[in-house]
């Protein structure tokens, strides 16, 4: 609960308590017990702002309400992000507690700015805090991706121009596939290769290789292709639709490939 209200509440309780004469011991005890229950209820039921209150407080520029809401939001986001960094990110397990706290603080600061800037895009179909946490998660994960792929170069990854594997690569020496089956496998791989070559644009091929085969995040690939993540997703989606049509024409299906390469 906000400090201001907590103090006012304490004063109000004391004032009520003092109106009861000291000789009415049992009444005093009764009132104190009641206040205790009421305080607990407040903690459980009323600590949360409603969505409307969050938005109203955060946008009430230069007011105490805004300062308090910002502080409450900051604490909440920071502990959530810290929890995520510490508990879910094995890649950060070597970082110190202080270091992770600092990261959580930085991400939260950036996220808070973004939340205030985009607060009007909050549609109210979830709790405000869930929406705000989503913004913070996105900031944190984006930053972590950028740090991890700092030295990544899309050109290097796609330089060899050879996307589809050889059977020798797919099945390292000595796999028990008969000559007939092996010929059929080669044929299917060749058809997939041809579909990728003929049905897709250069950009689609690059994106498919980096994202689909190498597992590079869309966000990183998008940056290097001078586009944004949403547009890249659409580009890849378009590529999948085209490949599906091309492969279906060749009579290839998932179950067929599954059986053939099993």
């Amino acid at each position: 609960m906000q400090t201001k209200y907590r103090n006012r509440l304490a004063f109000a309780r004391l004032a009520v308590y003092r109106t009861i004469p000291p000789k009415e011991m049992s009444l005093r005890i009764c009132v104190v017990q009641f206040m205790h229950v009421e305080a607990l209820l407040r903690v459980y039921l009323m600590t949360e702002r409603t969505n409307e209150q969050w938005v109203a407080d955060l946008t009430a520029d230069h007011t105490v309400e805004q300062a308090e809401a910002l502080e409450d939001l900051r604490l909440r986001l920071q502990r959530g992000i810290f929890y995520y960094l510490r508990r879910e990110r094995s890649d950060l397990s070597s970082r110190s507690h202080t270091n992770l706290q600092q990261m959580a603080e930085d991400f939260t600061q950036e996220a808070t700015l973004r939340i205030i800037k985009n607060i009007h895009s909050f549609r109210g179909d979830s709790r405000f805090t869930t929406w705000a946490t989503k913004v913070a998660v996105r900031v944190a994960i984006s930053e972590l991706r950028r740090a991890r792929y700092r030295d990544f170069s899309l050109e290097e990854v796609t330089a060899d121009g050879e996307m589809m594997p050889d059977l020798n690569v797919l099945f390292p020496a000595g796999q028990p596939t008969g000559p007939e089956r092996s010929a059929e496998q080669s044929e299917v791989l060749e058809k997939i290769r041809a579909a990728i070559q003929n049905a897709l644009t250069e950009r689609q091929r690059t994106a498919l290789e980096a994202v689909g085969l190498r597992g590079v995040p869309l966000e990183i690939v998008a940056e290097q292709m001078n586009t944004n993540r949403n547009a890249l997703y659409k580009l890849l989606h378009d590529a999948r639709v085209k490949l599906r049509a091309a492969l279906e024409q060749e009579g290839i299906s998932v179950s067929y490939i599954h059986d053939l390469f099993r």
Partner: peptide, 25 residues
């Protein structure tokens, strides 16, 4: 990845795993 992270945090908040001083460890 973002969805799974959000779910983890919201779940921890709902279950009261995250304490007030921001440790949540």
């Amino acid at each position: 990845e973002e969805f799974e992270a959000l779910l983890v945090i919201v779940r921890a908040e709902d279950q009261g795993v995250l304490n007030q001083n921001g440790n949540g460890t």
